[in-house]
Protein backbone atom coordinates (compact mmCIF):
# COMPACT_ATOMS: atom_id res chain seq x y z
CA UNK A 1 0.00 0.00 0.00
CA UNK A 2 2.84 2.36 0.87
CA UNK A 3 4.47 1.80 -2.48
CA UNK A 4 1.33 2.68 -4.36
CA UNK A 5 1.00 5.82 -2.29
CA UNK A 6 4.56 6.82 -3.12
CA UNK A 7 3.86 6.43 -6.81
CA UNK A 8 0.77 8.59 -6.47
CA UNK A 9 2.78 11.18 -4.62
CA UNK A 10 5.46 11.34 -7.26
CA UNK A 11 2.84 11.53 -10.00
CA UNK A 12 1.18 14.36 -8.15
CA UNK A 13 4.44 16.32 -7.70
CA UNK A 14 5.18 15.81 -11.39
CA UNK A 15 1.76 17.16 -12.32
CA UNK A 16 2.24 20.16 -10.05
CA UNK A 17 5.48 21.11 -11.75
CA UNK A 18 4.48 20.37 -15.32
CA UNK A 19 0.87 21.57 -15.15
CA UNK A 20 1.31 25.33 -15.46
CA UNK A 21 3.85 25.01 -18.28
CA UNK A 22 1.20 23.60 -20.63
CA UNK A 23 -0.93 26.63 -20.22
CA UNK A 24 1.53 29.20 -21.60
CA UNK A 25 -0.14 30.64 -24.68
CA UNK A 26 1.29 30.56 -28.17
CA UNK A 27 2.94 33.30 -30.19
CA UNK A 28 1.07 36.56 -30.06
CA UNK A 29 2.29 40.08 -30.39
CA UNK A 30 1.70 41.84 -27.10
CA UNK A 31 2.49 45.39 -28.19
CA UNK A 32 -0.25 46.77 -30.45
CA UNK A 33 0.75 50.26 -31.45
CA UNK A 34 -1.80 51.38 -34.04
CA UNK A 35 -0.46 54.94 -34.10
CA UNK A 36 3.23 54.05 -34.57
CA UNK A 37 4.34 56.01 -31.50
CA UNK A 38 6.96 53.37 -30.77
CA UNK A 39 9.96 52.48 -32.93
CA UNK A 40 10.45 48.87 -33.99
CA UNK A 41 13.38 48.56 -31.56
CA UNK A 42 11.28 49.81 -28.70
CA UNK A 43 8.49 47.41 -29.59
CA UNK A 44 10.76 44.39 -29.65
CA UNK A 45 12.37 45.48 -26.37
CA UNK A 46 8.95 45.69 -24.74
CA UNK A 47 7.93 42.33 -26.23
CA UNK A 48 11.04 40.79 -24.72
CA UNK A 49 10.22 42.20 -21.27
CA UNK A 50 6.64 40.93 -21.60
CA UNK A 51 7.83 37.46 -22.57
CA UNK A 52 9.98 37.26 -19.47
CA UNK A 53 7.00 38.29 -17.29
CA UNK A 54 4.89 35.65 -18.96
CA UNK A 55 7.33 32.82 -18.41
CA UNK A 56 8.43 34.04 -15.00
CA UNK A 57 5.08 34.84 -13.43
CA UNK A 58 2.50 33.14 -15.69
CA UNK A 59 0.89 36.47 -16.47
CA UNK A 60 0.19 37.86 -19.93
CA UNK A 61 0.85 41.54 -20.56
CA UNK A 62 -0.65 43.54 -23.45
CA UNK A 63 -0.06 47.16 -24.40
CA UNK A 64 -2.49 48.79 -26.86
CA UNK A 65 -2.09 52.30 -28.25
CA UNK A 66 -5.01 53.47 -30.38
CA UNK A 67 -7.40 56.35 -31.05
CA UNK A 68 -10.26 54.20 -32.31
CA UNK A 69 -12.19 52.29 -29.63
CA UNK A 70 -15.03 51.31 -31.95
CA UNK A 71 -17.41 53.50 -30.00
CA UNK A 72 -16.80 51.62 -26.77
CA UNK A 73 -15.66 53.08 -23.48
CA UNK A 74 -11.96 52.55 -22.65
CA UNK A 75 -12.95 49.97 -20.08
CA UNK A 76 -15.09 47.87 -22.42
CA UNK A 77 -12.66 48.17 -25.30
CA UNK A 78 -9.78 47.05 -23.09
CA UNK A 79 -11.72 44.07 -21.73
CA UNK A 80 -13.00 42.98 -25.14
CA UNK A 81 -9.65 43.45 -26.87
CA UNK A 82 -8.07 41.15 -24.30
CA UNK A 83 -10.82 38.53 -24.43
CA UNK A 84 -11.43 38.35 -28.17
CA UNK A 85 -7.77 38.24 -29.16
CA UNK A 86 -7.11 35.21 -26.98
CA UNK A 87 -4.60 36.71 -24.56
CA UNK A 88 -3.99 35.25 -21.13
CA UNK A 89 -2.08 32.47 -19.41
CA UNK A 90 -3.68 29.40 -17.92
CA UNK A 91 -7.28 28.28 -17.67
CA UNK A 92 -8.34 31.62 -16.19
CA UNK A 93 -6.52 33.65 -18.89
CA UNK A 94 -4.46 35.56 -16.33
CA UNK A 95 -2.94 38.82 -17.46
CA UNK A 96 -3.10 42.60 -17.75
CA UNK A 97 -3.83 44.95 -20.61
CA UNK A 98 -2.95 48.64 -20.69
CA UNK A 99 -4.98 50.65 -23.16
CA UNK A 100 -3.67 54.06 -24.14
CA UNK A 101 -6.75 55.67 -25.64
CA UNK A 102 -5.53 58.78 -27.50
CA UNK A 103 -9.06 59.81 -28.53
CA UNK A 104 -10.03 60.43 -24.93
CA UNK A 105 -6.45 60.96 -23.68
CA UNK A 106 -7.27 58.19 -21.21
CA UNK A 107 -5.35 55.20 -19.93
CA UNK A 108 -7.08 52.05 -18.72
CA UNK A 109 -5.60 48.93 -17.10
CA UNK A 110 -7.73 45.80 -17.36
CA UNK A 111 -6.91 42.75 -15.22
CA UNK A 112 -8.00 39.16 -15.77
CA UNK A 113 -7.71 35.88 -13.83
CA UNK A 114 -5.23 35.84 -10.99
CA UNK A 115 -4.10 39.36 -11.93
CA UNK A 116 -7.42 40.56 -10.49
CA UNK A 117 -6.39 39.36 -7.06
CA UNK A 118 -2.84 40.68 -7.21
CA UNK A 119 -3.73 44.06 -8.68
CA UNK A 120 -6.17 45.48 -6.16
CA UNK A 121 -7.89 48.80 -6.74
CA UNK A 122 -5.29 50.70 -4.77
CA UNK A 123 -2.42 49.09 -6.67
CA UNK A 124 -4.10 49.86 -10.01
CA UNK A 125 -4.50 53.45 -8.86
CA UNK A 126 -0.77 53.61 -8.05
CA UNK A 127 0.12 52.17 -11.44
CA UNK A 128 -2.13 54.63 -13.24
CA UNK A 129 -0.45 57.43 -11.29
CA UNK A 130 2.94 56.12 -12.38
CA UNK A 131 2.12 56.08 -16.09
CA UNK A 132 0.05 59.26 -16.33
CA UNK A 133 3.18 61.40 -15.86
CA UNK A 134 5.18 60.06 -18.82
CA UNK A 135 2.04 59.73 -20.99
CA UNK A 136 1.17 63.39 -20.63
CA UNK A 137 4.70 64.20 -21.86
CA UNK A 138 4.27 61.81 -24.79
CA UNK A 139 6.85 59.36 -23.44
CA UNK A 140 4.95 56.23 -24.49
CA UNK A 141 7.94 53.90 -24.34
CA UNK A 142 8.84 55.06 -20.83
CA UNK A 143 5.20 54.68 -19.70
CA UNK A 144 5.10 51.14 -21.08
CA UNK A 145 8.34 50.23 -19.28
CA UNK A 146 7.02 51.68 -16.03
CA UNK A 147 3.88 49.60 -16.47
CA UNK A 148 5.87 46.38 -16.85
CA UNK A 149 8.17 47.25 -13.93
CA UNK A 150 5.14 47.88 -11.72
CA UNK A 151 3.72 44.50 -12.70
CA UNK A 152 6.92 42.77 -11.64
CA UNK A 153 6.98 44.71 -8.39
CA UNK A 154 3.43 43.84 -7.34
CA UNK A 155 3.61 40.22 -8.47
CA UNK A 156 6.67 39.79 -6.27
CA UNK A 157 4.68 41.22 -3.37
CA UNK A 158 1.94 38.74 -4.04
CA UNK A 159 -1.72 38.90 -3.19
CA UNK A 160 -2.19 41.31 -0.28
CA UNK A 161 -3.58 39.97 2.97
CA UNK A 162 -7.33 39.99 3.24
CA UNK A 163 -7.69 40.50 -0.51
CA UNK A 164 -11.26 40.08 -1.70
CA UNK A 165 -13.24 40.76 -4.82
CA UNK A 166 -16.16 43.13 -4.86
CA UNK A 167 -18.69 42.89 -7.64
CA UNK A 168 -19.18 46.30 -9.22
CA UNK A 169 -22.73 47.40 -9.54
CA UNK A 170 -24.08 46.58 -12.95
CA UNK A 171 -24.41 49.89 -14.74
CA UNK A 172 -26.13 48.69 -17.89
CA UNK A 173 -23.13 49.65 -20.00
CA UNK A 174 -21.84 46.21 -20.79
CA UNK A 175 -23.99 44.14 -23.07
CA UNK A 176 -24.34 41.03 -20.96
CA UNK A 177 -25.46 41.09 -17.39
CA UNK A 178 -23.55 37.99 -16.45
CA UNK A 179 -22.49 37.62 -12.88
CA UNK A 180 -19.69 35.24 -12.32
CA UNK A 181 -19.65 34.06 -8.71
CA UNK A 182 -16.50 32.33 -7.45
CA UNK A 183 -17.74 28.94 -6.34
CA UNK A 184 -16.34 26.61 -3.67
CA UNK A 185 -15.17 24.32 -6.43
CA UNK A 186 -13.21 27.17 -8.07
CA UNK A 187 -11.49 27.86 -4.78
CA UNK A 188 -10.62 24.18 -4.33
CA UNK A 189 -9.16 24.10 -7.84
CA UNK A 190 -7.19 27.25 -7.10
CA UNK A 191 -5.75 25.85 -3.88
CA UNK A 192 -4.91 22.54 -5.56
CA UNK A 193 -2.55 24.38 -7.88
CA UNK A 194 -1.15 26.56 -5.15
CA UNK A 195 2.55 26.09 -4.58
CA UNK A 196 2.21 27.47 -1.06
CA UNK A 197 -0.29 24.78 -0.02
CA UNK A 198 2.10 22.23 -1.46
CA UNK A 199 5.02 23.73 0.41
CA UNK A 200 3.03 24.03 3.62
CA UNK A 201 2.04 20.34 3.53
CA UNK A 202 5.63 19.38 2.69
CA UNK A 203 7.06 21.32 5.63
CA UNK A 204 4.44 20.04 8.10
CA UNK A 205 4.95 16.43 7.02
CA UNK A 206 8.72 16.82 7.22
CA UNK A 207 8.56 18.24 10.73
CA UNK A 208 6.07 15.55 11.82
CA UNK A 209 8.39 12.82 10.54
CA UNK A 210 11.44 14.24 12.28
CA UNK A 211 9.56 14.67 15.56
CA UNK A 212 8.05 11.19 15.38
CA UNK A 213 11.47 9.68 14.64
CA UNK A 214 13.16 11.50 17.49
CA UNK A 215 10.49 10.80 20.08
CA UNK A 216 10.37 7.10 19.26
CA UNK A 217 13.34 6.46 21.54
CA UNK A 218 11.75 7.87 24.65
CA UNK A 219 12.04 11.20 26.35
CA UNK A 220 13.60 12.62 29.47
CA UNK A 221 10.78 13.10 31.96
CA UNK A 222 12.68 14.66 34.80
CA UNK A 223 13.15 18.37 35.26
CA UNK A 224 15.00 20.72 37.52
CA UNK A 225 12.49 20.11 40.31
CA UNK A 226 12.74 16.31 40.38
CA UNK A 227 15.74 16.06 42.66
CA UNK A 228 15.41 19.36 44.45
CA UNK A 229 14.69 18.76 48.14
CA UNK A 230 11.20 20.09 48.84
CA UNK A 231 11.24 23.61 50.18
CA UNK A 232 15.01 23.87 50.06
CA UNK A 233 15.16 26.49 47.33
CA UNK A 234 15.73 29.96 48.71
CA UNK A 235 15.93 33.01 46.52
CA UNK A 236 18.50 34.91 48.53
CA UNK A 237 18.99 37.90 46.29
CA UNK A 238 16.98 39.42 43.54
CA UNK A 239 17.59 42.69 41.75
CA UNK A 240 15.92 44.35 38.80
CA UNK A 241 17.67 47.59 37.90
CA UNK A 242 16.26 49.83 35.24
CA UNK A 243 18.95 50.81 32.76
CA UNK A 244 17.42 52.62 29.83
CA UNK A 245 14.46 52.84 27.57
CA UNK A 246 13.85 53.34 23.88
CA UNK A 247 10.74 54.29 22.01
CA UNK A 248 10.20 53.69 18.33
CA UNK A 249 7.49 55.18 16.19
CA UNK A 250 6.16 53.64 13.00
CA UNK A 251 3.58 55.02 10.65
CA UNK A 252 0.41 53.02 10.34
CA UNK A 253 -0.57 52.32 6.77
CA UNK A 254 -4.17 53.08 6.18
CA UNK A 255 -5.55 49.81 4.95
CA UNK A 256 -8.97 50.90 3.79
CA UNK A 257 -9.59 49.76 0.24
CA UNK A 258 -6.07 48.43 -0.09
CA UNK A 259 -7.22 44.87 -0.32
CA UNK A 260 -10.24 45.29 -2.55
CA UNK A 261 -10.31 44.21 -6.17
CA UNK A 262 -13.41 45.52 -7.93
CA UNK A 263 -14.61 43.21 -10.67
CA UNK A 264 -17.04 43.37 -13.55
CA UNK A 265 -17.92 41.11 -16.43
CA UNK A 266 -17.16 41.97 -20.05
CA UNK A 267 -19.26 41.12 -23.10
CA UNK A 268 -17.46 37.83 -23.58
CA UNK A 269 -18.51 36.70 -20.11
CA UNK A 270 -15.02 36.91 -18.64
CA UNK A 271 -14.51 38.62 -15.31
CA UNK A 272 -12.13 41.60 -15.31
CA UNK A 273 -10.79 44.05 -12.81
CA UNK A 274 -9.00 47.29 -13.46
CA UNK A 275 -9.00 51.05 -13.38
CA UNK A 276 -7.95 54.07 -15.37
CA UNK A 277 -7.17 57.76 -15.49
CA UNK A 278 -6.81 60.77 -17.77
CA UNK A 279 -3.54 62.25 -19.01
Amino acid sequence: MFKRLNVLLIAFIFFMIIGPAYAVSGELSNVKDYLDYLTDDEESELQEAIDSVRTGYNLDVVIVITDDTEGKSSKDFADDYYDYNGYGVGSDSSGLLMLINMAEREVWISTTGKAIDIFTDSRIAEMIDDVVGPLSEGAYFEASNTFIDDIRYYVEMGVPQGQHRVEQEYQGQSSTAYYHKVTYFDKVLGLMQSFYVFLFALIISGIATILASLSSKGTVTINNHTYEAKGSFVLSSSRDDFIRETTTKTEIHKDSGDSTSSIHTGSSGTTHGGGGGKF
Binding site: E228, S236, D241, I243
Partner: peptide, 20 residues
Amino acid sequence: NYQYTQTKYYHVMRGGHAKY
Protein backbone atom coordinates in the same frame (compact mmCIF):
# COMPACT_ATOMS: atom_id res chain seq x y z
CA ASN B 1 -1.28 57.70 12.62
CA TYR B 2 1.63 56.26 14.53
CA GLN B 3 2.31 53.15 16.48
CA TYR B 4 4.70 53.61 19.39
CA THR B 5 6.75 50.82 20.89
CA GLN B 6 8.51 51.47 24.14
CA THR B 7 11.20 49.08 25.33
CA LYS B 8 12.56 49.29 28.86
CA TYR B 9 15.82 47.52 29.63
CA TYR B 10 16.59 46.07 33.03
CA HIS B 11 19.65 44.57 34.56
CA VAL B 12 18.33 41.40 36.19
CA MET B 13 20.13 39.44 38.89
CA ARG B 14 18.96 36.41 40.84
CA GLY B 15 20.82 34.46 43.48
CA GLY B 16 19.72 31.50 45.52
CA HIS B 17 20.53 28.15 46.99
CA ALA B 18 18.91 24.74 47.15
CA LYS B 19 19.56 21.18 48.20
CA TYR B 20 19.48 18.30 45.80
